[in-house]
Each structure stands twice: as C-alpha cells, then as structure tokens.
Design a protein around this nucleic acid. Structure first.
Lengths: 331, 331
DNA sequence: CTGTTAGCGCCTTCAT
DNA sequence: ATGAAGGCGCTAACAG
C-alpha cells in the first residue's frame, strides 16, 4: 500500500505538504503547481489514505455501532437500513451487532466504544440502566437509546427516542371499538414494548367501560400467537376482535382462528403491531401499526452524528417518534 | 482513556512489559508478581486496549465487511446473522453495507479494504468481473464471493461459494411433474440468480417432453409476481402449476390466482425459492426451496477468516452450498 | 525476567 | 509556500 511518504517521494515534496494538500488545507498557502504534483502522484500510485492511522491521530473513527437484538427479527432490517443511509450520507460507517436482548451482550458491545473502535452507539438496550450508561457518559461517548421512554425512572444523560406504544395500543383498540366490537381481547408476550401495549389496550377498554380479556404467553412469535389464541378460546373467551402485541403473534393468531373454523374478519377481527413485511403478504392482509422503522433509524443516526460533530450539545433529548394505524383486511 | 503508559506508571514497570503481559506473551518469562501488578493496575484504571493503535501496528483490523444488496430484502437477514455469529466466534467484527445491486456501489466498498478499514470482504457482487477483483487480489486482500458460479467465464483468483440454482429449479419442476402436473409455467424477474432458475426449469421441461411457458417481468417483487401471473393467464396459458423465481413473486402469484377465482393448490399449485420468513406464514403456506442462508453466511465467513489467518492458503475455492425443497401446502 | 528502541501512517504546530 | 519534528497507542525485536 502506498503511503503519504511514497507520494511525497514521487512528487519530490515533503510528506507534510502532501498531507496538507490531501486535507485541503491549502488556503492560498500551497501553490497550484504543488497541488497538481501531489494529485498526479496520488493517482499514479493509487494512494489511499489509511483510515486507521488517521483515526489514531485524530481519535475519530468515523464509525458508529448499531445495537439491535436480532437482525432476523423482521422489525429491524428497515430500521438498520435507515441508520445506514443516514450514516453513509454523513461519511460514517456502521457496525451492526446483535444482542439477542441479553443484558451481558448489551453491555459487551460498550467495548466497541471503549476500545476506540467506534465513535458512538445507537440502538436498543432493554436491560441497562443509568449506572450502566454511566461508563460511556463519563468518557463523553454519545449514545442514542431507542425504545420505550422510561420516564423519570430513567435519568441517564443520554438521548432517547421512543414510540408512544401506550397511545398506539389505545388507538388500535379504539379502532376496533369504533367498528362495533364490544368483546376485544388482547394477546401479548413479555418483554420489549409489549407491556406498554397491554397497558394502552387496558386504558381503551376501561374508558369504554368494556371488559378486559388478556392472554399472555412467553414467546412473542408466530407460535406464541397461535398458542395464546387457542388458550383464549379454551378458557371460554369468545372475542369478536383480537389485538396481538406484534405482527408475528397476529399471524399466529390468524392461523389459530382458521384452525378453529372461524373466518377473518367476519367472525373475528385481528390486528397487530410493527407492520413487518409479511403483514401485507398474508391473507387476509393484516391491519397493524406502522412504526416507521426506517425513518426512526434515520432520525436516531442523525441525532447521534450531530452529537458526534458537536452540532448538537444541549441536554439529553427525549424525543417521540410517530406511528400510524394501517388498515388492511383483517380488521 | 487510560493507556499502557498509564498502567506502566501505576505499576512501576515499563510500558513494554505491560504490553507483554496484556498479550499473554509471558511463557515463564514474566514473573507472577509482575503479572499481578499489571492486572491490578489495569483494573484500577479501567484500562482498555486501543484497538486502532493495535491495528495500525499489526495491520490487522479484526474486522470484515459483508457486502449485500439490501438488508431489507428478506433473503439476507439470516445470511447476515450467520456471518456475524461466525465472525464473532473468531473475534472479528462485521461491517454490513448495502449495494442496492449497483455496480458503482459494489466497487465503492472495495475502499473499505483499500483504506485498511477491514481485513477482508465477503458478499454479493453481481456486476464485477475479474479485472475489478484484480485490485484486491494484487494487494493480497481476501474476498469470498457469494452467488452464482460463473464457471470458466470467471477466473478471478478469489473464493466463490454458490448454490446450484439450475439443479434446484430442475428439482422443483420435477417435483411438480411427479405430482402429475403437465402444464407447468414459470414466472421470473431479471437479475441475481433468476436466469439460472429459468434454465433449470427449461431443462426439466425438456427432459419430460413438456411445453415451456415462461413469463418474465422486470421486478422480482410481490407486485412483479402478481403482474406476471396476470399476464400469463391473459396471454392464454392455463397452467396447473406455477414456479416463481423467488418467494416474494410466488406470494404475488398466489394473490393473483385468488384474484382470478382460482384456489391453491387445487386449481393451481405454486412454489417459490428462498424460504423467506413470510413463506411459512402465508396461506396456504408456500412450498419453496431452502437455501440455508444462515449456514451459507457461516461457511463464507469461516472461509474468509481461514484466509485471513493463513490456515487456508491453497488455490481459490469453488464451493457449492446445498439446498432443499421444503414442501408445504401450496404444491 | 524486564527495559530500550524503533516504527505502523497520519496530522499538526513551528520553523524556515 | 514548504519542510522538520513530534506523537497518537501499540507491538516486536533486541538488549541487558
């Protein structure tokens, strides 16, 4: 690999001058002839700046880490894409890491920043609290946390962008009620934003003086949705509408309903959350809540980059991200 | 951030000794007391090695790039996950970049390696040929190319792992024929492995002395599958089985069939390729070909890492990856 | 057993 | 307008 030294030798200049030209610090200081000489040598040698050396010198890696539970969970790819587009536009690379929503792994990837591997972090940290983030905050490493707003319980000095899952669930439940449903059940798993969604559901049910009917399960997957729906009916519920805490569960719920000989949405209406790609592909297509994941990724990445560049240096932000009910054929 | 110098000062040793201890080059050379002193100082200071400095010195970044067209294409997330798991186990980080299958972007990410940002590359390069890869080969940067085996046309000295799409398509077509179908049509887009799949289909049709019926479309998406199917029938074909060049198209095909009042698989059987997550979720569930993406990612990553570590230094490999027909309810 | 020395490639004052 | 010199944090000979 050609280095600045090689370029300097070939162009008969010093390495320092080459550096100046390459970094465009030529404010009428470097002669045009010199600049041309350098550029020619750069081309001839196929010189590429070594980013590691530059990073070591400037202590800026121009790389950020995007921390997610699992890229194979259909919620995440578009979010990741949003992050990557925003970062690329700003000249940053992205390292993506999967935590499987495990605390030790969430913490483990702090090392990326502590070892000077990346300039900042953004992503989902379900199990970390103020003291955990303290390590990074102390060292001045910016973090943008996604997911629920933990409110006052969570006073870490980092940015947080969240979706108002409570309102979203309330709206979705109201949507069912508006359509005339009076027996609305909910199925949910545990973890992530699912509890907030249950709370939003409860709130809508209470406001409308209806009766709660909630079936929990441990896994928030297609199978979880199938099982929870079966349990629901086995335990005597006979809802005319079911809200699932995410789309995978909703799709499992639909399979269970067909299995029970019920038609959708005529006998039972179904809705979910996340608007994953499969939601528009199943039959009937699934009514759900779009959380604008790609946009969320973009917003988060831009905020992180603003922190990195110093464009943004105010107090930690608590930002909310919009959602939208997508009405399709299942409800 | 604490450095080795700080650790040395605190423990009253030289920085070089600290480095030895930290790199575990202590083969009975360093006294136990010294080791303990260093370890204590490391803990007290919360010292973390700076990986950039190490990388600059050793010219090993312990990072690889995974180059894919688009992470939001459901074929890729599990492949990426396979890559990440394998790399993590070997102590490597992964940078994922999206090319959108555009030539200039495929080429653009060579810079990651040329700038010393990553040690090697692995991924899909649909538009690059021998001379393009030459840049990397010259510098001794390992690349593992995924996707079709270009055979003799492609003589770049890099590893290649491919799926035998021709055989897979032939097998899938035979599967339909074995089930008694004599009018089997195919719908396909352009690009990626789709043409090979068309060729496999043709081969099976010819072997069985049946008549070809192929409908091409420009986009290999759900919509593309819908449109192609509509065209197929509009142009007078009346297949009893349709093979789509990927699952998204197959799902679009199923929508079109329902739209035409045909039931699946009774009136028309449908099958696709890729076994994307949605395939098991649609109704009827889709018969398809599992390409073992996650495993493919793992194999590719391990091969790349073997090249990196020098464990593997033979001639470029041409490796084939298995596939398997997954029979579900659509055919 | 431990310390000295010499860079990896780059940026950045400070001289000239 | 250009060059010399120092150092970012680390590893790796080579001495002692």
């Amino acid at each position: 690999m050609a280095t600045q030294k090689d370029v300097a030798k070939l162009s008969g200049l010093s390495q320092a001058t080459v550096s100046l030209v390459l970094n465009d610090i030529t404010d009428g200081l470097v002669s045009l002839k010199t600049i041309k000489k350098v550029n020619k040598a750069v081309l001839d040698l196929g010189y590429r700046p070594n980013r590691l050396a530059r990073a070591l010198r400037t202590s800026k890696t121009m790389t950020v880490a995007c921390v997610i539970p699992d890229i194979t969970n259909p919620y995440y790819p578009s979010l990741v894409r949003g992050v990557q587009v925003a970062c690329e536009n700003a000249g940053y690379d992205v390292i993506i890491v999967n935590t499987d929503a495990k605390r030790d792994r969430e913490l483990h990837f702090f090392d990326l920043a502590l070892q000077g591997r990346v300039d900042g972090l953004l992503g989902f940290f379900f199990h970390l609290d103020v003291s955990d983030f303290g390590i990074l905050v102390e060292k001045g490493i910016p973090v943008v946390r996604l997911g629920s707003d933990l409110g006052n319980k969570f006073s870490a000095k980092i940015d947080n962008i969240h979706t108002d899952n409570i309102s979203a669930a309330r709206d979705l439940t109201d949507h069912m009620i508006t359509k005339g449903h009076t027996k609305v059940s909910m199925i949910a798993g545990l973890g992530g934003p699912q509890l907030e969604r249950v709370n939003g559901y409860k709130s809508a049910i209470t406001n409308n003086k209806l009766v709660e009917s909630i079936q929990l399960t441990d896994e928030f997957t297609e199978k979880g949705g199938f099982d929870a729906t079966k349990s629901l009916f086995k335990l005597g519920a006979s809802p005319s509408a079911i809200i699932a805490a995410n789309d995978l569960m909703a799709i499992g719920c639909m399979r269970a309903l067909r299995n029970l000989g019920l038609s959708i949405p005529e006998d039972v209406a179904v809705a979910g959350f996340d608007d994953i790609p499969a939601s528009s592909l199943v039959t009937p297509s699934l009514t759900t809540v779009n959380l604008f994941q790609q946009d969320l990724g973009g917003v988060a990445a831009r905020l992180l980059i603003e922190r990195l560049t110093g464009e943004q240096n105010g107090p930690p932000k608590r930002q909310e991200h919009p959602y939208e009910i997508v009405q399709r054929n299942s409800a």
